[in-house]
C-alpha cells in the first residue's frame, strides 16, 4: 500500500470561546492511513466531526495531540502555504468572492506572494478549467453571487483544482444538489480524480455516494474514527 497520509493518534479539541472555559473534544484518538491516488470517503452522521477532520489535512486547524504524516514526514515540517497549495479544499458551504465566476477562478493565481503567474499562464489554466465542462459557458461572465447554490458548489470545485493540486479535499460537495445533478457532479469528480490521479478525500453522509466512489471508507461517529476497506461498513449508521 502506497501511503500518502498517516494519522497517528490524532485528537482535536476546539478551543473555548470564553477565557478559562473548557475546550470541546471533537476528534478522539484517530489513527488511519490514506492511500495515494485513491478515492477515500469520510462518512458519518451529522455532527460526527467529518468537517473538522478534513480541515486537519490542509492545516486550517492543527491536532491538539497526535501526528499527521504526509509522505512519511510530519505535515508541520512543510511550509504551511506550500502544503495548502498542494491540496484543493472545497468547503461544505460554497464560498463566492466578489466579481464574476471567472474572477473567482483567477483568484488562486493572484493571492500568493511566493508564486507569480503571467497573464498567459492564468488564461490557459482557466481555459483548461472551462474545458472540464462543469459549468455552462455562459456562466463564466456572470456575477458569482448570482449563481445557484449547486452552481456555486461546482465553481468551488473548479477553483480548488485551479492550482493543479495532487490532493483534493471535498466537504460534501453535492449537499445542495438534487440526486440527478449530484450524480452528474460525482461522475465529474470521479473523472477528474482518475484523469489527474488525484488523491481525493471526500466527506459524505450519503450511503449511495460512499458506495459509488469510495475506494476506501473512513467512518466517524462522535469523533471516533473507524476504517474499513470494505465498502459495506460494519457501523450500521455509517
Amino acid at each position: 500500500m502506497d501511503v500518502l497520509f498517516e494519522f497517528r493518534s490524532v485528537s482535536f479539541s476546539a478551543p473555548s470561546r470564553d477565557k478559562g472555559g473548557n475546550s470541546t473534544r471533537i476528534i478522539e484518538d484517530a489513527s488511519f492511513q490514506i492511500e495515494r491516488g485513491k478515492f477515500t470517503v469520510i462518512s458519518g452522521p451529522s455532527g460526527a466531526g467529518k468537517s473538522t477532520l478534513l480541515r486537519l489535512f490542509n492545516r486550517l486547524a492543527d491536532p491538539t495531540s497526535g501526528d499527521i504524516l504526509l509522505d512519511g514526514k510530519n505535515i508541520c515540517e512543510y511550509p504551511v502555504m506550500d502544503l495548502r497549495r498542494r491540496m484543493g479544499w472545497v468547503p461544505q458551504v460554497p464560498v463566492r468572492f466578489n466579481g464574476t465566476v471567472e474572477d473567482n477562478l483567477r483568484l488562486p493565481f493572484t493571492i500568493s506572494k511566493a508564486h507569480k503567474y503571467s497573464g498567459a499562464e492564468i488564461k490557459s489554466a482557466i481555459d483548461e478549467l472551462k474545458g472540464l465542462k462543469l459549468l455552462n459557458d455562459e456562466l463564466y461572465t456572470r456575477k458569482a453571487d448570482d449563481l445557484s447554490v449547486g452552481e456555486a458548489q461546482r465553481l468551488n470545485l473548479l477553483r480548488s483544482i485551479a492550482l493543479k493540486p495532487g490532493i483534493l479535499l471535498l466537504d460534501e460537495p453535492t449537499s445542495a444538489l438534487d440526486p440527478e445533478t449530484s450524480d452528474v457532479l460525482l461522475t465529474q469528480i470521479d473523472r477528474i480524480q482518475k484523469e489527474r490521479e488525484l488523491t481525493t478525500i471526500m466527506v459524505s453522509h450519503r450511503p449511495d455516494e460512499v458506495k459509488r466512489v469510495g475506494e476506501q471508507v473512513i467512518r466517524i461517529k462522535n469523533g471516533i474514527v473507524r476504517t474499513d476497506g470494505e465498502i459495506a461498513g460494519d457501523l450500521p449508521n455509517g
Partner: peptide, 17 residues
C-alpha cells in the same frame, strides 16, 4: 470567515486573507 479560510486554503498568508 468562510472566505478567509478559502483564501488560506489557496495559499494566501494571513495578511492577504
Amino acid at each position: 470567515k468562510d472566505m478567509i479560510e478559502v483564501l488560506l486554503s489557496l495559499g494566501a498568508d494571513a495578511y492577504r486573507a
